[in-house]
Design a protein around this nucleic acid. Structure first.
Lengths: 379, 379
DNA sequence: TTGTAAGCGTTATCAC
DNA sequence: GTGATAACGCTTACAA
């Protein structure tokens, strides 16, 4: 691996200054090809007013010397780094990983690089990472709209364009509570007032409300009328899904129930799910907060001898990669995570190219029919 | 977002040059605090020889102006970008996502940023992305050791330190074939000769051979003697796991079988698994290439009425997040993905700090006991 | 302890 | 078409 083996023939006395060892600059190309460095730049950039033969000579010299442009210098000179900063709560989980894949795609196609930063759910860290990104002169920033990041953002506006990914930034705990207590009839109105029906300007989000609606609709079509939503938590996405669930469940004339469980705590979830399924008004179908919760629900059902989907239909939201491999394979509302990243990136790039910030976009989920749902049985 | 609102008191005639709108530089701090720009740098860097009061004055001016250092300029001046480049086949999958989390951790702690690039399994793209990273003057590079990347690397050595993540770079198809045909007795020796027992210099890898060994050992302790490995593919990791499996299975005096399936094709896998389980010498236990394959095997077993773990024990390798939620919960050999990223990063940082490249490291898997394995039944 | 000035590698504005 | 040359914002000898 040719470990840094220098100290061989470097001129005695102090070398002029620090500088990378074998770096080829346009100056050297200029010498070799007998033109000025200005011409080298023009030639290499495909500037129209350079004689073809000059261009060829320069190109040749560059190739011969193995020239690799110094983007740092270029950035300093032009002010554009062709890099976008990305601030996420974390990178390890499946969700953001997929989103990042979409971001990478979009950035790459446009010739942009992606500089990564994570907030770990901490406001001051968010602020710090934002500063790092800005110090590295990213041209624009993509952020996961979480509370920590939003708080950091609120402290000082960014000097570069920004696009948020995720649910509405204004959605806080008060809303979660409200969503849980409102009468179904008031929900649609409430959504409108809170501006949650569609994400605002500069935001790309998964349409959580709609996703739950899709799930309910599917179950309604199968004849289900006793529904439950499992997995309502304090997350904004959870609250929004509850909203969609209650709204649509109400419309199909269903008595619906909402049960709070934590997808992170298996025991918790199991207990709550069992209580629901063994309770007096056992639902015939369940919409789960996400696929992990759905897995928990199915597990709980099996534990008390309930067959899925024969005796209980379960719909997840997400479509994680194992969903198709489960027993039964999970019916779910696919979340277009990759697309989410892609759209957000495209929006940002539009602005970077001088365009206007596209209006906020809400991406719809897609129902993936598999084996965990079935027509309701005559009860 | 305070759209570029200047044009107030800028000197008439053309402003000197392009430059970001509200950018504060050390020069302005210098003016405001009545010192030279050199002193500003020194003060801000915590240089020892600056009078405390001067430092304070400078710091104050900087704060007042909302100074944010320009890392691009700094990089150009110093030659160090405090950024490491990361080249992966993809970022969307769970595996690399976790690894990246470890990388981010390590880099962040050391004050480094991470610049992302993906190869999509394409050699020329790898080369290009490597060039992009180098143009952006990353101080070092971390790469997933896959064939495309290795080929790109072989074309020209990198001018910066590099650490590989993943299986041995020299392990090619010929080896895969060899591993599949060798007599168990020769395997250990073969491993040694190929230098696969431990990853070489500058490489951090999961010990695939060992992982399979761990799985076999666990099954052996439960009394199993008729074992099979399912999921051997052309991937290097698969070949290595087969090697470990056969070697250890041979030692415990087991008749072992190896069956090839593709974890990507559900139907394929199902068919192959069923053929194995319905065949004449049905194994009492299976080591799966990874957790996804394990899920497929369990599924196939259920499909033909075989209970897991009562009639068939199954061990996975990986420990994906749903492993604990499956029915039965999956016993598996956990792959320390995050740790992998962390170690590779630490190795790279050691070199960047002037240290010697640490020897290659192989990270051991850890057996996670859950419900898919049980003592062999009197057959 | 502080100031002066020469870079770092490119780009871009002028002239010619 | 091409060549000087002044930025870009920061660091760092070398002087003072």
């Amino acid at each position: 691996m040719a470990a840094s083996s220098d100290g061989q023939d470097r001129p005695r006395a102090t070398r002029r200054k620090r500088s990378a060892p074998g770096t080829v600059t346009i100056k050297e190309i200029a010498e070799l090809s007998g033109v000025s460095s200005a011409t080298v730049t023009r030639a290499l950039q495909g500037h129209p007013r350079v004689r073809p033969e000059t261009r060829a000579r320069v190109q040749q010299a560059a190739d011969k010397l193995g020239y690799r442009p110094n983007d740092i210098a270029r950035t300093l000179a032009t002010g554009a780094s062709k890099t976008i900063g990305l601030l996420l709560p974390s990178i390890g989980d499946r969700y953001w990983g997929e989103v990042v894949a979409g971001i990478e795609d979009g950035a790459d196609e446009a010739g942009f690089s992606v500089l990564l930063a994570t907030s770990h759910g901490d406001t001051s860290r968010s602020r710090r990472m934002l500063d790092v990104l800005l110090s590295k002169r990213v041209d624009g920033v993509l952020v996961a709209s979480r509370r920590d990041v939003e708080e950091a953002l609120a402290q000082a506006p960014l000097p570069v364009p920004l696009v948020r990914i995720g649910p509405d930034a204004e959605f806080h705990q008060a809303d979660v509570d409200a969503a849980g207590t409102l009468a179904p009839a008031d929900l649609a109105d409430w959504l409108q007032r809170r501006g949650l029906a569609h994400p605002p300007h500069g935001v790309t989000a998964f349409d959580d409300v709609d996703a739950a609606t899709i799930a309910v609709e599917h179950l309604a079509q199968l004849g289900h009328r006793r529904l439950a939503f499992v997995g309502a938590g304090t997350r904004r996405s959870a609250a929004l899904r509850v909203v969609g669930f209650r709204e649509r469940a109400g419309r199909i004339g269903s008595e619906s129930a909402t049960v709070v469980t934590s997808p992170d705590s298996l025991e918790e979830s199991d207990r709550a799910s069992r209580a629901l399924l063994e309770g007096p008004a056992r639902p015939t179908a369940v919409v789960a907060y996400d696929d992990m919760v759905a897995i928990g629900v199915i597990r709980a059902a099996h534990a008390i001898g309930l067959r899925v989907p024969e005796e209980l239909s379960v719909v997840g939201i997400d479509d994680i990669d194992v969903a198709a491999f489960l027993e039964p394979p999970l019916t779910t509302v696919r979340q277009p995570k990759r697309e989410l990243g892609r759209r957000a990136t495209d929006a940002l790039l539009t602005v970077l190219r001088g365009g206007a910030m596209p209006a906020g976009q809400a991406l719809r989920g897609e129902l993936i029919l598999r084996g965990s749902t079935a027509p309701v049985r005559g009860v």
